[in-house]
């Protein structure tokens, strides 16, 4: 299924909630679904043989370089208040 379908349907339903002044607390369902999904993601990853050291090291490289990139471009553009 295309990822855009549930996204667009959700946006439409959310918009309808807003126009009808209905507030829905999404924290609990979102947290529950997220934890279940992360668990299933872990199961998928666990089935594949992958080096934990490579995974952790590469994660840090990506995190640091994406942060440097974001701050660097913002400084280059001279974004100010």
């Amino acid at each position: 299924m295309n990822i855009f379908i549930p996204l667009l349907v959700g946006i439409l339903i959310g918009y309808l909630f807003r126009t009808r002044d209905m507030r829905v607390d999404l924290d609990v369902p979102m947290s529950a679904v997220l934890l279940l999904m992360i668990f299933f993601l872990g199961v998928k990853v666990g089935k594949v043989s992958v080096s934990t050291g490579w995974l952790l090291g590469s994660s840090i490289v990506f995190a640091v370089l994406t942060i440097i990139g974001s701050v660097g471009v913002a400084l280059f553009l001279g974004v100010r208040r």
């Binding site: 990822i3 996204l7 349907v9 959700g10 439409l12 807003r18």
Partner: peptide, 26 residues
């Protein structure tokens, strides 16, 4: 190595759907 079928995909679509509702409301 258990087989959970397509539960992972179902959770993903549920999450995307909830994110959509959140975006639509806010």
């Amino acid at each position: 190595a258990p087989d959970f079928g397509n539960l992972y995909e179902l959770m993903l679509y549920a999450l995307i759907f909830i994110i959509g509702i959140d975006l639509g409301m806010n």
